[in-house]
């Protein structure tokens, strides 16, 4: 959980209070806090003068607008065919080992969430993952450990 404070009001000032402002506002909240709480969605609905169901209905449509609690760093492992052929399962099991969580879970210290995702557009450098916005490609079980360690500090 995180406190919303003036954040939603400030974002509405920045992006506007029209319906088309909704996505940029939700995207910026997720970038800052990794997921959307019920409280923040209600606050956005109030600010934009639409129903909270509209906000939740929109957010829940989009994979990257998480409405469940997520860690500070969200790791998304590409599971589409080329990454799958080029060792995605080894990457997932390595990540599960070092983070001590399963796909879909968040570490107890809320530092990492491990997810699988559909094609992220790096098939020529498979296997690939996204950590937050950053892609990492041509991974091996060894290199993915180094990458994740960089986010542990």
């Amino acid at each position: 959980m995180y406190q919303t404070g003036n954040m939603v009001k400030e974002l509405a000032e920045k992006h506007g209070r029209k319906r088309e402002s909704l996505m940029p506002i939700l995207q910026e909240i997720v970038r800052k806090h990794n997921y959307l709480t019920d409280d923040v969605m209600v606050a956005v609905a109030t600010e934009l003068d639409i129903s909270a169901a509209e906000v939740y209905g929109t957010a829940s449509f989009y994979t990257f607008l998480d409405t469940q609690e997520r860690g500070k760093n969200v790791i998304r492992v590409c599971k589409t065919i080329t990454c799958s052929m080029k060792g995605k399962n080894d990457i997932v099991s390595t990540l599960e080992d070092i983070l001590k969580i399963k796909v879909g879970e968040t570490t107890p210290d809320k530092m990492f969430t491990l997810l699988e995702t559909n094609c992220i557009g790096w098939c020529h450098k498979a296997p690939a993952i996204l950590i937050n916005d950053m892609p990492y490609t041509d991974l091996t079980p060894e290199t993915v450990i180094d990458v994740v360690k960089g986010y542990m500090r």
């Binding site: 029209k18 319906r19 088309e20 402002s21 909704l22 996505m23 939700l26 995207q27 997720v30 929109t58 449509f61 989009y62 994979t63 990257f64 607008l65 995702t117 559909n118």
Partner: peptide
């Protein structure tokens, strides 16, 4: 925000419109 279907033109418009 991670939805394949938004590459469909009218879905893309819906998404921009919020």
């Amino acid at each position: 925000s991670g939805a394949y279907i938004c590459g469909e033109e009218s879905a893309l418009f819906e998404s921009i419109e919020g």
